[in-house]
């Protein structure tokens, strides 16, 4: 019995194990890099995160009407609306939840949009508008929400 233990695993099994482990690790690394590559969304030839910094828009809310003016050179595909009230926070997609008349292809540079959203917003005290951009990736067109305070617009009601 002791003699068997001292011999260890055979060189053939060791080689097979080694090759198998290398293949598995290579596959995992491949999947990891592939996943990273797919996440890259570009707009105008640069990462969409950089395009978020180029978005410029003015927003106003008066008498229940939300007005958004695209004063930059990046089309705004959509707007996420966060309505903050007394201890509550609700998130909306402007086109799907509040204003279906929002242009299908987004608000082009120089464009202006207005809609009555008072019924849905209700007693909110603050509205936060977050731009959504349309970019391209290996998988086709993808939307990207410009997360971060520097890209959003706050309106105190």
């Amino acid at each position: 019995m002791k003699r068997v233990l001292r011999k260890g695993i055979s060189p053939v099994i060791a080689t097979v194990l080694l090759v198998a482990i290398v293949i598995i690790i290579a596959f995992i690394v491949f999947l990891w890099f592939k996943a990273m590559g797919e996440e890259v969304i570009t707009k105008f030839g640069k990462n969409v995160e950089l395009s978020c910094g180029d978005v410029e828009f003015l927003a106003e809310y008066s008498n229940g009407e939300l007005i958004i003016s695209n004063t930059g050179n990046v089309p705004i595909f959509g707007i996420k609306v966060t309505a903050e009230g007394a201890g509550s926070e609700k998130n909306y997609d402007l086109k799907n939840n509040l204003a279906p008349e929002w242009p299908d292809l987004g608000l082009n540079p120089g464009g202006i949009f207005s809609a009555d959203i008072e019924t849905e917003i209700g007693s909110a005290e603050k509205i936060i508008l977050t731009p959504v951009l349309m970019g391209t990736s290996d998988r086709g067109e993808r939307i990207y929400i410009c997360k971060g305070d520097m890209y959003t617009s706050e309106i105190i009601i």
Binding site: F33, M36, G37, V40, T42, F44, G45, K46, N47, E49, L50, D54, N73
Partner: peptide, 17 residues
């Protein structure tokens, strides 16, 4: 090459202004 392909989209370009 792999790092370049991954990071090239992050290279800032001149803004359209």
């Amino acid at each position: 090459g792999v790092m370049y392909a991954w990071m090239k989209s992050y290279v800032p370009k001149e803004s359209l202004d």
